[in-house]
Amino acid sequence: MSLVQRYGEVPVAELSKLLHVSEVTIRSDLKALEQSGQVRRTRGGVRLPLGNQGETPLEEAGRQHAHAKRRIGQAAAALVQDRETVFLDVGSTTTEVARHLSPTLRGVTVVTAGINIALELERLPNLRVIVTGGTLRPLQHSLVSPYALEVLRHIHADRLFLGCNGVDAIHGVTNANHEEAEVKRCMVAHAAQVIVVADHSKLGEVSRAHLTPLSRVSALITDRHGDGLPPALGQVLRDVQTV
């Protein structure tokens, strides 16, 4: 439990090595811990159970750096072209992307795990909107595994607009929630282009769940603030658009 609390999520194989016992023993103990509600099993590992405690509601997050997120959303939405299939991730910045998609777009399919994003897109009758399904995370209005992953595995997108909690030159793109991270990683795997939309407060930050290395990121759209982009990020990212 100490290791899980320290790292958030730990593979079974790693626990076996650290505690010098067999994986069979580890799995037996994890089963007992899960039954008591202390942990949640994942594929090949274990993590702390995720609830809504301590999470910032999506509406409150949207008020933080609101002007920056609006400009980022406008710039990102302008990239979408007719007849594209687009993954639109959950979050306050990606919600701004949805709000700024052009009503003149034709033949575009938007796939999202965000219920609020799907509702935003109702105003665009020429867009086809696919909602992944899954288990609802109420404060974030997002849908997570298991069903979200099953839908995404059957779709190939031209581009993904990816939200996050951190963009770091070494640790890549990270997110605070492990359940949402599963869905985001699946989107990354099935998108031709990955475009990260993140305001300046996320730059240089590292959060709990890894999403993708920066080598997989086609572009970063962020806002101008203070000293600008951290030099280390500028050296690694191929395309940075500041708005």
Results as ranks from 00 to 15, higher is better:
Asp227Thr: 12
Ala219Cys: 13
Val129Glu: 06
Glu205Thr: 14
Asp227Met: 14
Arg185Met: 02
Val240Tyr: 06
Val217Cys: 07
Leu143Cys: 05
Leu152Ser: 00
Thr174Tyr: 08
Glu122Trp: 10
Lys202Gly: 04
Met187Trp: 07
Asp227Cys: 13
Arg159Cys: 10
Glu205Ser: 14
Leu214Ser: 01
Ala192Met: 14
Ala176Glu: 12
Val131His: 06
Val173Asn: 03
His154Pro: 09
Val236Phe: 01
Leu162Gly: 01
Glu205Ala: 12
Asp158Ser: 03
Asp199Cys: 07
His154Lys: 15
Cys186Trp: 07
His154Thr: 13
Leu139Phe: 07
Gln140Asp: 12
Val240Trp: 03
Ala169Arg: 08
Val206Cys: 03
Ala232Asn: 10
Asp158Gly: 01
Val197Phe: 02
Val197Gln: 00
Gln193Asn: 13
Gly133Ile: 03
His156Asn: 12
Leu214Asp: 02
Ala157Leu: 03
Ser218His: 11
Asp239Cys: 12
Met187Thr: 01
Asn177Phe: 11
Val206Lys: 02
Asn177Ala: 15
Gly226Thr: 10
Leu149Ile: 14
Thr222Glu: 06
Leu203Ser: 02
Val183Ser: 06
Arg224Tyr: 13
His210Lys: 11
Asp227Lys: 11
Gln193Phe: 01
Thr135Tyr: 15
Ala189Cys: 05
Val194Thr: 13
Ser142Ala: 14
Arg208Met: 13
Ile221Glu: 01
Pro213Ile: 05
Pro213Asn: 01
Pro213Ser: 07
Leu139Met: 10
Pro231Asp: 09
His210Gly: 09
Val167Pro: 00
Asn177Arg: 10
Leu139Trp: 04
Ile155Gln: 06
His156Arg: 13
Lys184Gln: 13
Leu124Phe: 07
Glu122Ala: 15
